[in-house]
């Protein structure tokens, strides 16, 4: 008997993977979010989220942290990515490696090292928990902002900048009117890659002795108290926020080029 092997069959492992590790967990989370302890459908968890001062407070604090971290990352990463993309090819790779090498070291290790540095400077980390968190997260997430911006800048057609200059724009105007708008897809994906982790990654806060909860630690605390339902609902709300943010940003970044979409990854 001849076995027909269609190329389509190649997608089976991926489909299986998706179902097992993406769709199924989401469904489980959804199920828990909308049921109570007895397994009945309820919206209580949803209402609870928006009425609990504790949850809302944590949401605001997390957003504040994430916002400051994202802005800081952006402010540092854009010039770095810009300089990298403009430097000569030989030097460029060396510089890029400098920014990537830290990613090869386990991040808890890096943050622990940072903690020692910060405590040496500040004496007691408890004085500035917010600032320490921001420093820790910025330090950790910076490469995720640099890389997507760098990728879009490097792919930018050099002719366009020359055309702008040819039409009378000085270097600053060329940057403002051509380079910056055309690098927005990279900026947006950088923001996406930093903002969400900054709202949820509580390990950094733990290591830096910041006892304030952010969304991640809140979910974790409910889960470790076996309250799957509230924890799941918080996850779902976070998911919804991120989803909405993605939709909005995609709509406002005018991406004509399908190739540019690659930068969204």
């Amino acid at each position: 008997m001849k076995i027909y092997f269609s190329r389509k069959n190649l997608c089976i492992p991926y489909a299986l993977f998706l179902v097992l590790f993406v769709i199924a967990p989401v469904l489980v989370v959804l199920y828990y979010a909308f049921t109570n302890g007895e397994g009945q459908f309820t919206l209580e968890n949803l209402v609870g989220f928006f009425t609990s001062a504790n949850t809302i407070g944590t949401l605001i604090y997390s957003m504040a942290v994430a916002f400051v971290v994202t802005v800081l990352c952006l402010v540092i990463a854009y010039p770095v990515a810009y300089i990298l993309s403009k430097s000569r090819i030989k030097r460029r790779n060396g510089l890029l490696i400098l920014f990537i090498i830290p990613m090869w070291i386990n991040f808890t290790l890096r943050v622990t090292a940072l903690k020692e540095v910060l405590s040496a400077i500040e004496g007691n980390l408890a004085y500035y928990p917010f600032i320490n968190t921001v420093i820790g997260q910025t330090y950790d997430f910076l490469p995720f902002m640099i890389l997507p911006i760098y990728t879009t800048l490097i792919k930018l057609d050099k002719d366009l900048e020359e055309a702008a200059s040819d039409l009378g724009a000085n270097d600053f105007r060329t940057f403002l009117k051509v380079t910056l708008p055309l690098s927005m897809p990279g900026v947006i994906s950088g923001i996406m890659m930093v903002f969400l982790p900054a709202m949820t990654n509580y390990v950094i806060l733990d290591i830096l002795y910041n006892s304030t909860y952010i969304m991640g630690s809140l979910i974790g605390s409910y889960f470790s108290a076996y309250n799957w339902h509230t924890g799941s609902m918080i996850s779902i709300v976070l998911f919804a926020i991120v989803f909405a943010a993605t939709l909005i940003t995609n709509k406002y970044t005018d991406i004509d080029n399908a190739a540019d979409r690659g930068a969204m990854l």
Binding site: D157, D159, L160, E162, A163, A164, D166, L167, V178, P181, L182, D254, D256, N257
Partner: peptide, 12 residues
């Protein structure tokens, strides 16, 4: 002013 080989029109 220059007319570029690949036009170099601003896509945005």
């Amino acid at each position: 002013n220059t007319v570029f080989q690949r036009y170099a029109l601003f896509p945005h």
